[in-house]
Amino acid sequence: MEWLIKFPEMDRDGLREFKKTVDNAFTSFSRNYGEGIENFFDPLLSFLIAFEKLFLNTPWPITIFAILSICWLASRSILIVAGTFLSFLLIGYFGMWEDTMSTLAIILVATLLCICIGIPIGIAMARSNKVQTLILPILDVMQTIPSFVYLIPVVMLLGIGKVPGLIAVCIYAIPPIVRLTNLGIRLVDKDILEAAESFGANYWQKLLGVQIPLALPTIFAGVNQTIMMALAMVVIASMIGVQGLGLPVLRAISNQYLALGLMNGLAIVVLAIIFDRVTQRIGKRMQKYKSD
């Protein structure tokens, strides 16, 4: 009756062989193709570095002015602009200016990347049920798998640095925008779509003229969620070499520096709140035609 108490598992040698095979296969894969893949991501790296340099080298008053202008144009809310101004002054005063700029740069690049990849995938999912059944489980895996687990192959393949960090952030942050693009397009009123069809609109005219504009508020909720998740991932990504506010937090954990951890953690929170409020305002303004 022993097999009832102890689960009948694979024998040790077999298991070791299995793990070894998988590891070796991936190692040889990364040895053979790692460089090629790294070269493939080179443009991304230069883009990210250029972006970061832009943020770091611009005199801070200009940066603040630019950020405040964007906040105003996007939200039209004095309250949000004033809050942003105060937050950035405090961040600078407590010596976190440079880290904040690095974080801002990687978040913006990651979000752009997620939008460019995620929205087309979402559109494809909305167009075909087959694609949707294929992609949904992949999104489920991406959202539930512990982020440390996919850090391993990313690091094996690309080493430690900005690009693997960026990829890790994107893997974590892309599901909401894909899901909500799909949902937004599928929720567009069938009657309205039928009207467009009855006037002889083709696929692209329907997509660009009717479906995407009507789905835009939902898509924007996805962008908002993507930014929030990217910010959450910044701390973990700092383990594999991403600069920014995550790094001091990591240092604070290993050395038990309470003040350092709190300050940088709160700076991330502040960024998150600003991003959230501003993008939500944009989303609301996109639905202006709904109110009178």
Binding site: D191, A195, S198, F199, G200, A201
Partner: peptide
């Protein structure tokens, strides 16, 4: 598509205007 564009148009019960 061309036939729908040129030869017939439709009015709907629930208006189906583009909001």
């Amino acid at each position: 598509l061309e036939y729908r564009q040129k030869n017939m148009s439709m009015v709907f019960q629930k208006f189906a205007l583009f909001p």
